[in-house]
Amino acid sequence: MDVRSNRREQGGSSAITANRLLDGRTVWLGAHGWSEQIAEARVIANTDIEAAIEDARARAAADSVMAIYGVQLLPDTATPEPLTMRERIRAFGPSVHPAFAISPQEGQRHE
């Protein structure tokens, strides 16, 4: 996938995202590995994010993920929320199919 949305704001924080190899789904790097729920993502200061991305990329094959990059987060949210529309759609699902959405509150994918 085209890796974009790597804007970094001084003093801000980011999460690390990727896509799973087997099904391509968006995942977020949490304290206990990769999760579909951005609510479980580790919030990493932008001063530390590049090193964390490098670490994650080094483990990509073992973790069966691809296209790893950092996503700038909105400040002061209860759970991590991306800054850009593109990353919000990746995190919470297509805006046009409520049935496919992942709720930011519940952190659950509705099937």
Partner: peptide, 14 residues
């Protein structure tokens, strides 16, 4: 190889 078989990777999945 996958693109030659019509398989893209998009925002949410293949």
């Amino acid at each position: 190889l996958r693109l030659m078989n019509g398989l893209y990777h998009q925002l949410h999945a293949y």
